[in-house]
Computed example of a mutant assay.
Amino acid sequence: MSVTANTFTRAELVDAFTAFEATVDRAARTRDWDPWVDQYTDDVLYIEHAAGTMRGREEVRPWIWRTMESFPGSYMTSFPSLWHVVDDATGRIICELDNPMRDPGDGSVISATNISILTYAGDGKWSRQEDVYNPLRFIAAAVKWCKKAEACGTLTDEAAEWLATYGRQR
């Protein structure tokens, strides 16, 4: 893939990323994932290292809904960026996103992070996103959450089923 010169100002990139974060935060609070997906161009290229490559907003939409409405995604409360870098030359934002899970019952915060690379297309839309992370860290965080919830008596049937399938061998 060749990198072409960016035609967007730094201010536009920063404003677009601020809007992206606000929309993602609102989606996490309301559990309505459509506005998040609507920030992508119709032909977005979304590379998710565990789930694969999706082409087009309407391929991304069901994946985000499925992921965020089933355990462990359904227990993630927000997706704040811990830091971000604006790459003016390529029109990209590189950021580390946190994925904290709801309180398992003892007040602890359990999360895992990922690096996301977003490519801006203009008009508030993103043409590409790549999420880079170690899936085993997410599994470990979910297992830890399940075990704490189990000890606190707050483990739900959905989380218990997930733990029985993916986490007992750890």
Rank of each mutant, 00 (worst) to 15 (best):
P80Y: 01
D88F: 04
G73V: 02
I94Y: 12
D87C: 05
D87L: 13
Y75V: 14
G105C: 05
D103N: 06
M68D: 08
F71I: 00
G91C: 04
R102I: 14
R66N: 15
P72F: 01
F79K: 01
S108G: 09
G105D: 11
F71A: 00
W83G: 12
Y75L: 12
M68P: 03
P72M: 06
S111H: 10
F79L: 07
F79H: 13
S108R: 07
C95K: 09
L97W: 08
I110H: 09
A121C: 07
L82S: 10
A112I: 03
R92T: 11
M76S: 13
T77R: 14
G122L: 13
R102M: 12
P80G: 03
S81E: 08
D98V: 04
S70Y: 04
V109T: 05
C95R: 12
N114K: 10
G73H: 10
M68F: 02
F71N: 00
N114Q: 10
T67Y: 15
M76I: 13
I94S: 04
M68A: 14
S108I: 06
D87A: 09
S70E: 15
G105T: 01
S74T: 03
I93N: 00
P72T: 02
F71T: 00
G105H: 03
V86K: 11
A121T: 09
G124M: 07
G107V: 09
D87S: 12
L82K: 14
L118P: 02
T113Q: 15
T77Y: 08
Y120A: 05
C95N: 14
V109G: 03
G122Q: 07
S108M: 07
S111V: 05
V85I: 10
S116N: 11
A112R: 06
E69M: 15
Y75P: 14
R66K: 15
N99L: 07
M76R: 12
H84A: 01
S108C: 05
G105L: 06
S81V: 02
W83C: 10
E96P: 06
